[in-house]
Design a protein around this nucleic acid. Structure first.
Lengths: 213, 213
DNA sequence: CTGGGATTGGCAACTTCTTGCCGACTTTGG
DNA sequence: CCAAAGTCGGCAAGAAGTTGCCAATCCCAG
């Protein structure tokens, strides 16, 4: 069994500096992410100047990103203007980029404020990662579809989040919004579902994570 | 009644670029902050190269910052090595810097990811801000004292936060830590108190804010 | 106008959290 | 060693949050 070194890059600058050539010539790019922060560099650098437009660009996100209007708009943009396929999944996915099914970039932990990125080129591993992605992709919903189904949530979400973040009780929050308590709690439940949170504490943390508060 | 323009600077770079001269010659600097992010620039730039050490440097923080070990250590450092006075308050304070009681810098909202900073020089207003600070300062606790009283909280806090963030129930979390449920909940209550949170959602958001998760 | 689907919000049963109380146990300073 | 003080954790009452159920209402196509 051969042991292959997996180079780990620290921080997005290094990541992009060392992998830009892979993106430039890629014909298929796959991207899975929990939020838009992790691949911010790839987003900013690639969008203005796509050296060669990849034949296929697929992006997989969690529902939470749609709660941020600007993120949601950005996704719609790249879907419509750049012909990318964007899907939403409730699965608990890891931050991953797969290029031409030959390289996989896996986001790791933060260290000194910089995230570590493992760049895998071992074919067997990349294939494995790719098939994990495929499974998640198949069970995911197309952005447009998901968008249509959850339009109303995005409308109230900001106000609900604000009230939750202000620390007030459901009773007060519901009255503030002119809703019944039952309905307010429905919204909160939908919100927590979108955030993939199992507790309100977790929801608070994730909402902050996504910059929704 | 004279209306004075309040210049608003955007982002920390601009803030520091335009106010560096005030800091350089200051003999008294007062700083109140919720977290260590807002005045990051002033911290980074001033610490290595304090042009003129102000005669008096007072810093007022909320208890939450102490939950982050590196923040806590930083505060102890500036208290011991730079002779700053550092106090902790449970009051709901605003991000403020007061220089020689002649200028007040008030942090405002974020816009396009950059925070706005109002620079006030109108004496009456500055005096008002200063006396608000004084009141908070008087009722605050010295860092060393607070530290001694809440040492044990900082030990368990990281694990409690992790469990809360993982979304598990109190029952499970308590067992995981080998604590009784009652005790675990006591820890959570102390934590929420330190974060100034009234609900678990708010606690989650603030913990994320302070980089505790 | 009307029927059918979706949304709403009251009710209620249940779960989870919050807190005061108290006895047991540990630690600390004489 | 003792006493005072502090911590722990079980118990329990009550508050807050979670969810299924259902009738009332709204909305939209037909």
């Amino acid at each position: 069994m051969s042991l292959e070194q997996v180079p780990v890059l620290h921080g997005e600058e290094e990541l992009f500096a060392r992998t830009a050539h892979l993106f430039a010539t890629a014909s298929e790019i796959i991207c899975a992410a929990r939020d838009m922060n992790t691949w911010a560099a790839t987003r900013q650098v690639r969008s203005p100047a796509p050296v060669t437009k990849p034949a296929r660009l697929r992006k997989l996100y969690r529902p939470g990103v749609l709660l941020n209007p600007s993120m949601a708009q950005h996704l719609r943009n790249i879907a419509e203007k750049h012909g990318a396929e964007v899907r939403i999944t409730s699965d608990d996915l890891n931050e991953t980029i797969i290029i031409d099914r030959r390289f996989a970039i896996l986001a790791g932990d933060l260290r000194d404020g910089r995230r570590g990125y493992g760049v895998v080129s071992e074919p067997a591993v990349v294939q494995n990662v790719a098939s994990l992605f495929d499974a998640a992709w198949r069970s995911a919903t197309d952005l447009a579809v998901y968008d249509a189904q959850h339009a109303e949530l995005c409308d109230v979400a900001p106000r609900v989040l604000e009230l939750l973040a202000s620390g007030c009780k459901d009773e007060t929050a519901a009255r503030t919004l002119g809703l019944g308590v039952r309905t307010y709690r429905r919204r909160v439940a939908e919100l927590m579902n979108a955030l993939g949170a199992e507790s309100r504490f977790q929801a608070g943390a994730r909402a902050r994570d996504l910059g929704l508060i």
